[in-house]
Amino acid sequence: MIKEKQVGVTMDTTVRFRIAREEDVSEIVQMLADDELGRKRERYEQPLPSCYLEAFQAIDQDHNNELVVAVKSEEVIGVLQLTYIPYLTYQGGWRALIESVRVHSRARGSGIGEQLMTWAIQWAKEKGCHVVQLTTDKQRPDALRFYKKLGFVDSHEGMKYHL
């Protein structure tokens, strides 16, 4: 189970990271849908489509997946999904895959994304992963710059085949 850690110096600026709960799913989907690309693929509506709760339950029950939220003043302001992948390469090493990184539009530019990513990298290291990898859509140049600033290197060419 994930440890909850706090970052910050006062109650007003403290950000906590924890495993998402079912009651967080609506806020998470709202963040995922809150940009040009997200609006094309997500359905944020009330009631929330059941497919999101079904996906949450599958993630929550999989010990190699963690849906992590950043919380400030009891409000969910960020999210990412960590998936732990065992490999035969690197002598049976483990990798962490980071996906679906979002910060609430009201909190963008405040350092929350950097705190969330730094926390996730450290958490993956503590779990014994030898590498952290991610993909970002080429239509998100700001995200690409952000990840490079954190030390990620575009060392591989990624491809997807949509079914």
Rank of each mutant, 00 (worst) to 15 (best):
R108G: 06
D62N: 15
I77W: 07
V68H: 07
E27M: 04
Q57H: 13
F56C: 02
C51D: 09
A70D: 08
R41C: 11
V79Y: 03
N64Q: 11
D24S: 05
Q61S: 15
Y87R: 15
T89G: 00
Q91C: 12
V68K: 05
D34F: 03
F56M: 01
S26Y: 10
E75M: 09
V29A: 03
T89R: 12
E36P: 01
Y44N: 09
A33F: 04
I59V: 11
A33P: 04
E66A: 13
I28Q: 00
A55V: 02
S26H: 09
W94H: 12
D62P: 00
V68E: 07
C51G: 00
E66C: 07
Q61E: 14
E42D: 05
K72F: 00
A55S: 13
V29L: 01
A96D: 03
V79F: 08
D34M: 05
E99H: 01
A55Q: 12
L88R: 06
K72R: 12
L53A: 04
S100M: 09
E74D: 14
D34A: 15
V25K: 06
S100K: 10
R102K: 07
F56R: 00
L48R: 06
T89Y: 07
E27F: 00
A96N: 09
R106S: 14
I77K: 04
G109Y: 10
R102F: 09
E36C: 08
E66M: 11
R43V: 15
F56H: 03
A58N: 05
R102I: 06
